[in-house]
């Protein structure tokens, strides 16, 4: 079977600056993969390239067997490939419920709006409590939930999460980890970018270590199940 997402030989960056070079990775059906590595080495750039926010200078990206390399973001979202961006303010001057309703914007997502909204509020009851509040008044954890909630409203068939735990307390991390686990159980494959290895190990089947804009190692959890070993690999690479 073809992989769900296949990234082959992709290079991309901002203007004249190349951030990622000749990257190749893939995601198979029902799989969850994690991308980790030091900050500023191209993980977010890769996600943005897949989402169509950045046009790659080389390589191809295919999703469910279709070439999406040159598609624009709304077309990619409409195809079911959805990214939840890093925990930023999203739309600060809009209300939480309003944002969630709006997020079911694509033709594909609109019919499922009511269902998905119920799922999101079920998953993150906190968002229901805050439904009338302006997004900029939310706490860091709530913003993260809203960001993931928005992505779910888009009715994703593949979900990419960019650093969902950034700046969260251990307790919140745990809560979020459980929620993401539940999303994964519904059968949505995941791509997670994360600094927190432990968090990543708990949620994914396979890891890619990304450094200096390149994939330097692929770690199969089946062959390297031990957390310490992965840490060793990571820091060994980072220092060496």
């Amino acid at each position: 079977m073809d992989p769900i997402l296949e990234i082959s030989g992709v290079s991309a960056g901002y203007g004249p600056i190349t951030v990622i070079r000749d990257m190749s990775l893939h995601l198979d059906a029902g799989e969850r993969i994690g991308l980790f590595g030091p900050n500023g080495h191209g993980k977010t750039t890769l996600l943005k390239t897949v989402s169509g926010l950045i046009r790659p200078s080389a390589g191809t990206i295919s999703f469910n067997g279709t070439d999406i390399t040159t598609l624009r973001p709304p077309e990619i979202v409409n195809a079911g490939l959805v990214q939840s961006p890093q925990g930023n303010v999203l739309f600060g001057d809009m209300r939480v419920l309003e944002i969630l309703e709006l997020a079911a914007f694509t033709r594909r997502a609109r019919p499922h709006r009511a269902d998905n909204l119920r799922t999101v509020l079920d998953l993150f009851p906190r968002l229901g409590e805050r439904s009338g509040q302006l997004a900029r008044t939310l706490s860091g954890g709530e913003r993260q939930m809203l960001s993931i909630g928005c992505a779910l409203m888009c009715a994703p068939t593949l979900l990419m999460l960019d650093e969902p735990t950034l700046g969260l307390s251990p307790r919140l991390k745990e809560e979020l980890s459980a929620a993401i686990g539940r999303i994964s159980q519904t059968g949505v494959p995941l791509v997670i970018v994360e600094q927190d290895i432990e968090f990543l190990m708990a949620l994914t089947d396979r890891l890619y270590l990304i450094e200096h804009g390149e994939v330097v190692r692929e770690i199969d959890r089946a062959s390297t199940p031990d957390h310490d070993e992965v840490m060793q690999l990571y820091f060994g690479e980072a220092m060496g």
Binding site: S51, G52, L53, P73, P74, V77, N78, V82, Q83, S84, P85, N88, L90, F91, L102, A103, F105, T106, A109, C150, A151, M153, C154
Partner: peptide
């Protein structure tokens, strides 16, 4: 950017 990521 966030608007584009929800398909707008």
């Amino acid at each position: 950017e966030s608007a584009a990521l929800i398909g707008i």
